[in-house]
C-alpha cells in the first residue's frame, strides 16, 4: 500500500472515530461535563503525578472532568464544522455556478463579490459581529457560514466554466432543457467531486476559526466545552500545568489534520484538482 492511501485511511480513521465519539458522547462520558467540583480542581491526568482515580484526563480549574469536556468538545467542533460548510457551501456554490455558467456581466459581479469578501478581515469581522449580536452557538455558525464561502465560489466557478462547454451540456441545451434543469442536473453533479474536496478544507478551517474565536472569548459561550474555549479558560494555569492546554490543543490538531488528510485522499480518489 502506498503512503498516500495510508494517510487517507488515517484521516478517515480519525474523522470517523471522532464522529462516533461525538454522536455517542452521552454514553461515553464518565462524568457530567458541566458538573463543577471546587474541591477537586486541577487534578492531573493519568500519566502525571497527582492524578485522581476516575478522572482519566484530570479535571479543570472548576473541577470538571476534562475527558468528558473533551468528548463534548468533539461534538461542538464537528457540529460547527458541518453546519458552517452546509451554509457556506450553499452560498459559494450558488454564486460560483451562476458566474461560471452565465459568464459576462453576471460573472463580473460574482468575481467582484468574491474580491470584496477577500478584502474583509475575516477574524476581525467575525469577532465584531459576534460581539454585537452576542455570542451563541447559532451566531458563531451563521457568522462563519456567511463569511467562509469564497473558496466554494472560486472552485464552483472555474469548474462550471470547464463543464459548461462539454457535449452533454450542449445536448441538454439543444433539447430545450430549462436553465434550472441544466444547472441542477447537468452541471452540479459534474462539479460535485471538486466541491466535496473544498468542503473538507473549509470544514477544517471552520473548526480552527471557531476555536480561535472561542479562544478570544467571542465564540461559543461558556460553559459549553469548545476546545478553543477550554484552552482559553485554562491558559492562566498553563505555566504550572501545561497539560491543560496540551490536551484540547492536541485534540483540535489531530481532528483538523484528520479532516485535511481525508480531503487529500478524496482529492486523489475523486480526481479533483488541487486548488482548482
Amino acid at each position: 500500500m502506498n503512503l498516500r492511501r495510508l494517510f487517507a485511511l488515517l484521516g478517515l480513521l480519525i474523522v470517523g472515530s471522532t464522529a462516533i465519539i461525538a454522536v455517542f458522547a452521552p454514553y461515553l462520558t464518565p462524568h457530567d461535563p458541566f458538573l463543577q467540583n471546587l474541591d477537586g480542581r486541577m487534578a492531573a491526568p493519568f500519566w502525571l503525578e497527582g492524578t485522581v482515580p476516575g478522572h482519566l484526563f484530570g479535571t479543570d480549574q472548576l473541577g470538571r472532568d476534562y475527558l468528558s469536556r473533551l468528548i463534548y468538545g468533539a461534538r461542538i467542533s464537528l457540529l460547527i464544522g458541518t453546519l458552517v460548510v452546509i451554509c457556506s457551501g450553499l452560498i459559494g456554490t450558488s454564486l460560483g455556478v451562476l458566474g461560471g455558467y452565465f459568464g459576462g456581466r453576471i460573472d463580473a459581479v460574482v468575481m467582484f463579490v468574491i474580491t470584496c469578501r477577500l478584502a474583509i478581515p475575516l477574524i476581525l469581522v467575525a469577532l465584531t459581529v459576534v460581539s454585537f449580536v452576542g455570542s451563541s452557538f447559532t451566531v458563531v455558525v451563521l457568522t462563519l457560514g456567511l463569511l467562509l464561502w469564497e473558496r466554494f465560489a472560486v472552485v464552483a466557478r472555474t469548474t462550471t466554466m470547464q463543464v459548461r462547454n462539454l457535449d452533454y451540456v450542449a445536448a441538454a441545451q439543444a433539447s430545450g432543457a430549462s436553465t434550472w434543469h441544466i444547472l441542477l442536473r447537468e452541471i452540479l453533479p459534474n462539479i460535485a467531486h471538486h466541491l466535496v474536496v473544498v468542503a473538507t478544507l473549509e470544514m477544517a478551517l471552520a473548526i480552527l476559526l471557531e476555536a480561535a474565536l472561542s479562544f478570544l472569548g467571542l465564540g461559543v459561550p461558556s460553559p459549553l466545552p469548545s476546545w478553543g474555549l477550554m484552552i482559553s479558560e485554562a491558559k492562566d494555569y498553563m505555566y504550572f500545568s501545561p497539560w491543560v492546554i496540551m490536551i484540547p490543543g492536541v485534540a483540535l490538531f489531530v481532528l483538523v489534520l484528520g479532516i485535511n488528510l481525508l480531503g487529500d485522499g478524496l482529492r486523489d480518489w475523486l480526481g479533483a484538482a488541487r486548488d482548482a
Partner: peptide, 25 residues
C-alpha cells in the same frame, strides 16, 4: 517530496493560538 508536503498538511492543521502558547511554554 512527500515529507515536505507533509509539513504543509501539518501546518494547515495547527491552531495558531495553541502553537503560540505551546512555544511559549
Amino acid at each position: 517530496d512527500r515529507a515536505i508536503m507533509m509539513i504543509a498538511v501539518i501546518g494547515q492543521a495547527m491552531p495558531s493560538f495553541w502553537l503560540g502558547l505551546s512555544l511559549v511554554i
